[in-house]
């Protein structure tokens, strides 16, 4: 299988069955399913960031741009009052996002480290202000999506986007596919070269590989999947807003990814679930939830050397 490491295997076998069954045990109302859905969607976004940062060593603080673009691209290219085909537009959005990433990547990949963080931030901020200042895209107040796409494939309809339960399972499946996709990528020859690029770009170049090209392809893939997550988020409630692209969104995703264990991929799911869970609990506990949240983050970073995934790794591997 793709999940070679023991800890990873454990996690996949516990998380996905649990996530499959969870809606059956939760109180039967729209909220829980919707909440789980948004966590699952965000985990996809975090995972694409996790690949970039943890596996390619490209730290970006502008990834939210693609997340937001996923939603806005749909509004830009789809007719307002006509149901379009979900799969076709998924394809369009991912391809357009990848093309945008290609152009942006050529610019940002000239830099590295902190400079790359800042230049990605700069480009994302420009994009944020473009939508936030715009008149035709609803400006700061955002826009509604009135007609959700139709999901039939070759005339067969599998599920209904308006049913929260259907949508949840679809997103969960997408998350699983994303995880498999990234595992395949990292396990392939391409992934191994990427690993070499991350550890020692100079030597990889000397071996005759075009480091820039490898980085660029990785950047495009991660951006396309981030846009896919953003597209799903926009469809969930039928609402897009520039705050999806704010640097705080990138920052939160980065926090989740580091919390989960940078580069472990499944840690992205772990980080997102734990962060969202803590957030949910604390905000129901007190108005000053920020204090608890902040303290918890500080405590975790002080105690866990490589995130939550690191802790699980330790536990599982030790029991061998």
């Amino acid at each position: 299988m793709f999940f070679l490491k023991k800890a990873e295997n454990w996690f996949v076998w516990i998380f996905f069955p649990l996530a499959l069954l969870l809606p059956l045990f939760l109180e039967q109302n729209e909220f829980y399913v919707n909440k789980l859905t948004s966590v699952v969607i965000f985990a996809m976004f975090v995972m694409s960031l996790d690949y970039l940062v943890g596996r390619c060593g490209m730290i970006t603080l502008g990834h939210s741009m693609f997340y937001g673009l996923g939603g806005y691209l749909f509004i830009m290219i789809a007719p307002e009052y006509e149901a379009v085909n979900f799969w076709v537009y998924t394809f369009y959005i991912c391809v357009i996002a990848a093309l945008i990433a290609l152009v942006v990547g050529v610019i940002v990949l000239r830099t590295s480290g902190i400079y790359m963080i800042m230049i990605t931030l700069a480009i994302a901020q420009m994009c944020f202000y473009f939508f936030s200042d715009s008149v035709e895209f609803g400006g700061n107040d955002g826009l509604f999506i009135f007609t959700k796409p139709d999901t039939s494939l070759f005339g067969l309809s599998f599920f209904n986007l308006d049913d929260p339960m259907h949508f949840y399972y679809f997103c969960l499946l997408s998350l699983f596919n994303c995880l498999v996709f990234w595992k395949v990528v990292t396990g392939s020859r391409f992934g191994r070269i990427m690993e070499a690029v991350k550890d020692n770009p100079a030597r990889t170049t000397a071996l005759g590989y075009n480091v820039f090209l490898f980085r660029l392809i990785s950047y495009c893939m991660a951006s396309a999947l981030a846009a896919y997550a953003g597209y799903l988020f926009a469809l969930q409630y039928g609402y897009v807003n520039p705050s999806m692209m704010s640097w705080q969104t990138s920052g939160t995703a980065l926090v989740m990814s580091i919390l989960g264990g940078m580069g472990s991929l499944y840690g992205a799911i772990l980080g997102t679930v734990v962060y969202e869970g803590l957030h949910y609990t604390f905000e129901h506990l007190t108005q000053h939830w920020l204090l608890l949240m902040g303290s918890m983050i500080i405590a975790m970073v002080m105690l866990f050397k490589s995130g939550l995934a690191g802790v699980i790794d330790n536990l599982v591997e030790r029991r061998k």
């Binding site: 109180e27 729209e30 909220f31 919707n34 909440k35 988020f233 969930q236 705050s243 905000e283």
Partner: peptide, 22 residues
């Protein structure tokens, strides 16, 4: 039942659903 919106539009639908359905 008090919920902090953090003035974040992207969280608004979720909180609204929570208050309505949950």
């Amino acid at each position: 039942i008090e919920m902090d919106t953090e003035a974040r539009p992207d969280r608004a639908p979720e909180i609204a659903t929570s208050l309505m359905s949950q």
